[in-house]
Design a binder for these strands. Structure first.
Lengths: 325, 325
DNA sequence: TTGAAAGCGTTACCAT
DNA sequence: ATGGTAACGCTTTCAA
């Protein structure tokens, strides 16, 4: 029994006689043999792995996205290799280098803004690349997301239509995706003749419940609290709800609060949080499906951009503006 | 200039003359050369990677844990390879096999209960193994966590001392860590002469806000709602708060609610959630530090068990039991 | 400081 | 159905 026979028995048990297969199986379990994937990759030039880059593991939205990717990739016998770029373009470039070094067969990456070197690496790797969560005017390969700026416009217009004139925008560190929403906010404010700059409050920190609290403190410090607050996500919105209550302000009586993403707790806050529902799961599933298709039929042309949409979900935390005393 | 010189220039730039280094650098960037890590691993028998297995990416507690692991491992020039076992012992075994196939230099794994085959694989791999989040009577290598059962006892006793006699235990799918907390609950109930079984309500689903709502519905369906609910985690507790309010029950007037983990939103719920604070970050950091130490000085004996502790955090959602009408 | 040769453990290719 | 041989792209070892 030679090495190559064992190799075959492991990959395609049917191509080996039952007798040999048995003795191989027993040998493997008694010896505790585990095939060396590095050697396999080197010899076969196939890694059976797909690189997945996310800015953080801390945010549920990426957890749901990753879950979906796993569920599609694993049955296709592709191992997702998840790397965390920690919201840094440089770390992202390193991550891309690492993944390409592993000879991943495709890369699924959150965002469309990369360092020039990172973009070049992705372009010259000649593997399927899917950029997600934001729309690119000039995608490297495929692109899945939704119109974040339009979502920002819709959300802001919704508050304007409720009669609000002073609408705060609460956000932590402004990454690509936050900046699109902010663009939408600014545009909607401008078109309504409202100040698009004055009520933007930001701190260079990760968006979180605690940051929502801090941002409301900051808003209050600056003077009157706007009659509506558009928060960059539901976590910030939850913190805002809490801080407003602590200051004796009612929601939506005194201040309307709007979140983003419709996380699972959004319906359970007090009052229930109005928000914009986004499709994280679908984004990941679609990205993974397109990856699998691209790997299975290389060269075939298909749609580059997929829109997974969004939906405004009005709940109890937003209401009509009322005249200030 | 030969291949080996390039190899050296890449790993130890100092060992190569400045002139050569320059021409190598330009060649690399014009060609878009990315070294093949599979070949490197095969030749050097070092993978510079550490396997990390978590049951899910969906839960923030593992996100914080992973974050800590990344922060310790990356500066030590070790790449974490994160694999998701999806709460399945079989998937965990596959994950272990995959990681060992990658020749990871160590494995950090959540939990202490594995399939016999998985345990054997870990034992015979002869690499550092750290089991986390639960205490093992018989750890494979190192073990980091806290006394989950004692935390369950303390939490239950706290509710008993508030005068509660009927204390519900709300939990989804019962994994190893949930089961320890449940053991603690049962023990504390028994020692107080209370029924340790009747008020346990469970459904075989992932713990989530939505599940908390469903579990309270189930509790109500069975008859009187207990005067206190010990929830397996803060998400379930948040759902419980919501469902109780929907049923017209006040917290803590009618029902006290206790969570677990002290997630970032716990202080911001209405009323603020009493809970048990756990150290996810420290768990991950310690696990990674011990891994690095074990890799740097193999053979040296050190402490096997590290306790990262926990702390009861009483807030507004728990209060004294009052006589039922 | 640089290089030649051997070898890491698997798989592709061709042969039997 | 099974095996021999070369090759994958690096690093180790030894030499210059």
């Amino acid at each position: 029994m030679s090495a190559i026979t064992v190799s075959r028995a492991l990959r395609n048990p049917d191509t080996v006689s039952a007798k040999l297969r048995n003795s191989i199986d027993t040998a493997i379990s008694t010896l505790g043999y585990v095939p060396n994937l590095a050697a396999s990759r080197l010899a076969s030039a196939r890694s059976h792995s797909v690189g997945v880059i996310v800015p953080t593991l801390y945010n549920v939205i990426f957890a749901e996205y990753l879950q979906a990717i796993h569920e599609v990739l694993l049955p296709a016998r592709l191992q997702p290799l998840v790397v965390n770029s920690r919201y840094s373009a440089e770390a992202e470039e390193v991550a891309i280098r690492t993944l390409l070094g592993q000879r991943v067969e495709a890369i699924i990456i959150v965002g469309t803004e990369h360092t020039p070197a990172a973009r070049r690496l992705l372009e010259t790797a000649h593997i399927p690349v899917v950029e997600t969560f934001a729309r690119s005017a000039n995608p490297i390969g495929m692109n899945i997301g939704f119109k974040l700026d339009q979502a920002g416009i819709d959300a802001t217009r919704y508050l304007i239509e409720l009669g609000h004139k002073e609408i705060g925008f609460l956000v932590g560190a402004i990454d690509e995706r936050a900046s699109h929403r902010l663009d939408g906010y600014r545009l909607a404010m401008k078109e309504a003749g409202l100040d698009p700059v004055r009520h933007v409050v930001t701190m260079p920190e990760l968006n979180s419940v605690g940051l929502g609290v801090a941002l409301v403190e900051e808003v209050a410090k600056r003077g009157t609290v706007p009659s509506a607050l558009f928060c960059i996500d539901d976590n910030v919105a939850l913190g805002a709800l809490h801080a407003l209550r602590s200051r004796g302000l009612t929601v939506p009586g005194d201040v309307s609060v709007l979140g983003f993403h419709d996380l699972d707790f959004a319906a359970c806050t007090v009052p229930a949080l109005s928000t914009v529902a986004t499709n994280r799961y679908k984004t990941g599933a679609l990205a993974a499906e397109m990856t699998v298709k691209a790997l299975n039929s290389p060269g075939s042309k298909r749609r580059k951009w997929h829109d997974v949409g969004y939906r405004l979900v009005p709940r109890a935390s937003t209401g009509p503006a009322r005249a200030r005393v």
